[in-house]
Amino acid sequence: MKVLLFLAKGFETMEASVFVDIMGWAGIEVVTCALQKKIKSTFGVSVNPNILLNDVCIDDYDALAIPGGFEEYGFYNDAFSEQAVSLIKEFNDCGKMIATICVAALALGNSGILKGKKATTYHLNNGHRQKQLAEYGAIVVNEPVVRTDNIITSYCPQTGPEVAFMLLEELVGTEKMQETKIAMGF
């Protein structure tokens, strides 16, 4: 089993790491991808992804995970790119799980897959990002984590573990997810 972790420039390392660690504890391989051979996170951590986005074959993956990031660090440049839009649509068209944390839901909104669906995104700062998500046609729900069909969205970095465990449960079942939670001390 494999999860594709799309890292847009300016991604938040904490939001990415929950997918890596939780899936890893459960024995699921996480493969990182990005538009460039080297990218920097929000606070300057350099990462060399395992694969470039253009080389991804979605048939090789069971789910897509996308951490959020900061606009000031170029997050939306990559997250809203044509390649990212295509990747998101392909995973959705195949009915594969897509899990996002915080503003990564905006990439889903930008791709068009959230039209008429319940979702959430970053909720602070006068709800600016939630209003933006609504402009894409999403039905915004001001809750920490929202699942609609094959899509999981959440509203801030604090929700990261919950999102990753929810994705894990979908991939391996409740019993294996609970075993992983206990092993990790949750």
Rank of each mutant, 00 (worst) to 15 (best):
Gly112Pro: 04
Ala8Trp: 00
Met184Ala: 15
Arg147Trp: 01
Gln36Thr: 06
Pro157Cys: 01
Thr174Ser: 12
Lys89Phe: 07
Tyr73Thr: 15
Ala138Phe: 01
Ala138Lys: 00
Ser81Phe: 08
Lys115Ala: 06
Ala16Leu: 05
Gln130Arg: 15
Glu179Pro: 00
Ala26Asn: 10
Asp78Leu: 05
Thr42Ile: 03
Asp21Met: 07
Met1Ala: 11
Ile39Thr: 09
Ser154Gly: 03
Lys117Trp: 01
Val45Gln: 13
Gly127Pro: 08
Ile101Val: 15
Glu15Trp: 05
Gly160Glu: 01
Leu64Lys: 13
Ala63Met: 09
Leu7Asn: 05
Asn48Phe: 12
Cys33Tyr: 01
Asn150Gln: 14
Asn110Cys: 06
Gly127Arg: 06
Leu167Asp: 06
Ile182Lys: 14
Thr121Cys: 12
Ala183Asn: 12
Glu29Tyr: 01
Tyr76Glu: 13
Thr42Lys: 14
Val145Tyr: 00
Asp59Pro: 06
Glu175Met: 11
Asn77His: 12
Gly27Ile: 03
Ser86Asn: 15
Val85Pro: 02
Leu35Tyr: 01
Val172Trp: 01
Ala34Gln: 08
Asn125Ile: 14
Ile58Phe: 06
Gly185Phe: 10
Leu52Lys: 11
Gly44Gln: 12
Lys89His: 10
Glu90Cys: 10
Lys40Asp: 10
Gly185Thr: 11
Tyr61His: 11
Ser154Val: 03
Gln178Gly: 02
Met1Tyr: 01
Val145Thr: 11
Gly109Ile: 04
Cys156Ala: 08
Asn48Glu: 15
Leu168Phe: 10
Glu29Ile: 05
Ala84Val: 12
Ala8Met: 01
His128Met: 14
Ala63Arg: 05
Lys40Gly: 14
Lys40Val: 09
Leu108Thr: 03
Tyr76Cys: 01
Gly173Met: 07
Ile22Pro: 08
Asp55Gln: 14
Ala138Pro: 00
Ala26His: 08
Thr120Gln: 02
Asn150Val: 08
Pro49Arg: 08
Thr159Tyr: 01
Ile66His: 04
Pro157Arg: 05
Ala183Met: 13
Asn50His: 14
Leu53Ala: 10
Glu12His: 03
Cys33Arg: 02
Tyr61Cys: 09
Met23Trp: 08
Ala105Leu: 03
Asp78Thr: 02
Tyr76Thr: 10
Val85Cys: 12
Lys176Thr: 06
Ile113Trp: 04
Ile88His: 08
Ile101Cys: 09
Asp149Phe: 02
Pro161Thr: 02
Asn77Ala: 12
Lys131Phe: 13
Asn92His: 15
Ile66Leu: 15
Ile66Phe: 03
Lys96Cys: 11
Leu108Tyr: 02
Ala164Pro: 09
Leu64His: 13
Asp149Ser: 13
